[in-house]
Amino acid sequence: MKILPLLVEKETAIIKRWLKHVLSAFPADAVRFLEKQNDRFANPLGHNFSEGLTVLYRNLRSEEPGDVTATLEQLMKVRAVQAEDTPAESLAFIFTLKDIIRDECRKEWSPELDDEWPDFTARVDRLALQAFDLYMASRERLFQVRIRELQSGRNALTDNMKCPSAMLREDLANKKAGND
C-alpha cells in the first residue's frame, strides 16, 4: 500500500490522537471540556484546534495539496497568544505528527513506505516552516496592535497618560527653567 492511501484510511485515528496530543498541553480539568463541547462558539479553542488540525492533515495526505495558509494562520494566532508556551513548544505539535503517524501505521508499515517516508516528512517540514513564519507574523501583529493603540490615543483609555494641560504645564515649566 502506498503511504497517502494508508493515511486516508487511518485519518480518523490519527487526527483524534493528534488533537489529544495538542490539547494535553492544557490542564486536565480543561481538557475534558475542550474535547467534549462541540459547539464552535461555546468552545472556540477546542474548535479552532479540531477544525485546524483536520484541514492541515487532509492537506498533507492529499494527492494534490492546496493552500492551507488561512487555517494555519488562525492556529498560529491562537498559539502566539498562549504566552505560557515558548515558540518551540508552540510549533512542536507539527513535528509530533510524524511520530503519531508512524505509531498508528506500525502494523501496516512496509519497506515500500520507507522509501516514500522522506518525501512525506518533507511535506510536514514545509508546513512547519510556514507555521514558523505565521507564528512570527502573529507575534509581530500583536506588537503592531499595541503600537497602534498607543499612537491612536486609544491608550488614553487603555493606559494611563498625562492630560494635555499637565503636558502644557510641564512645557511651560521647562521653558521657564531654560530661560532662567
Binding site: 494535553s24 498541553a25 512542536a92 511520530d99
Partner: peptide, 13 residues
C-alpha cells in the same frame, strides 16, 4: 522508531 526527544518535548508541554 519514535523520536524520544520529541516525545519528551511533548511531555514537557
Amino acid at each position: 522508531m519514535a523520536n524520544t526527544k520529541l516525545e519528551q518535548m511533548s511531555d514537557s508541554v
